[in-house]
Every structure is written in C-alpha cells, then in structure tokens.
C-alpha cells in the first residue's frame, strides 16, 4: 500500500514546488551543533561520575539517533512542497507525521517572512501563513529569499484581493 499512500499527501496532479536542498545542510548543521556537544558533555559527566560503561551506552545511543536524524532530515526536507492554485495554497510536508494543508487566499490574515541567523547564512527564508485559526499550520521553510519575498507578495496580494474577514 505504500506507493499510493506516499503520493496521497502529494497529489501528482499538482505541480509541486520543492524547497531548497540547502535547507538539508542547514538543519543538519543545527543537529550537529546541538547533539554532538551535548553527547560529549554527557559522556564526560558519566565518566567523571565513574560510570564509563553508561557513558559508552549513551554515546552509542546518541550516535544512532544522530545517524537516524541525519537521514530523516534529508527525507523530510524533500517532503516539503507547495502549490499556488487559483484560489488557495497547498502545503505538504512530513515523513513520520504527514500533513497536507489547504488555505484559501480569502482566509489569510497575514503572511510572515522569517529568516533566522542560520537560515540567513545559508541564504534561506521561510514563509508562514496565518488565518484566524491558530491550528492552520502552513509554514514553508527553506526558500531562497527572492523566491520567499515573491511568494509573500503574491500571497498578500491575493489575500487583499479576496479578503473576507471572518
């Protein structure tokens, strides 16, 4: 049953835009600079506390998690996709937890363009749509700044054009 499920959150009838592969590098960097120092600190503490075997176990576990997360990041970034249709925006993502969000342009209340320091150093930005519902989860990370700005402007124009209040 896997092929049909895989395409079900990404209907092939739409022309999906991917996000930049540089997002993979950026997220793997974040993973490395958080998990590896933590592992080293944890191992040192355990060794000092006289538990070298537990330190070994912790390091092995951390490495397994590291490799798994490293691999998952690649798949997860490739799973992101968005389509600007005539009346709405489609956003899909996720490997373990999949989602497909459909946001009508007329429901958008504001569009955020965000770029953190790591994103900026890789030349990335993310666009997030907000509706009156807090549960609308339509964030598109890992866009080149000019693409993100263009998308933001088009979405804002569409939203203004069709705004329907609540």
């Amino acid at each position: 049953m896997s092929p049909s499920i895989d395409s079900s959150f990404r209907p092939p009838t739409e022309a999906w835009h991917p996000v930049s592969p540089k997002l993979t590098t950026a997220r793997r960097l974040v993973l490395s600079i958080t998990l590896l120092p933590l592992t080293v600190i944890g191992a040192v503490v355990l060794v000092v506390a006289g538990l070298p075997i537990w330190a070994l176990v912790a390091v092995v576990a951390a490495l397994v998690i590291f490799v798994w997360a490293w691999w998952l990041i690649g798949r997860r970034v490739r799973s992101f996709g968005y389509v600007e249709r005539q009346d709405d925006l489609l956003v899909t993502s996720g490997i373990l937890f999949r989602r497909l969000v459909i946001v009508p342009y007329g429901r958008m209340q504001l569009v955020d363009l965000v770029a953190g320091p790591i994103d900026r150093s890789f030349g990335l930005a993310s666009v997030q749509l907000h509706t009156a519902a807090a549960t609308t989860d339509a964030k598109i990370p890992g866009l080149p700044p000019d693409v993100a700005a263009g998308l933001r402007d088009r979405l804002a124009a569409q939203g203004e054009h069709r705004s329907a209040g609540l």
């Binding site: 937890f97 989602r99 509706t131 339509a138």
Partner: peptide, 13 residues
C-alpha cells in the same frame, strides 16, 4: 472554514 488539513501519524499510516 478557515483552512482544511489532512494529517497522518505513524500509527495511522
């Protein structure tokens, strides 16, 4: 309706 979503966790999958 503000937006619609389809979600799927590992168990559902």
């Amino acid at each position: 309706t503000q937006s619609v979503r389809v979600t799927q966790g590992p168990w559902e999958r």
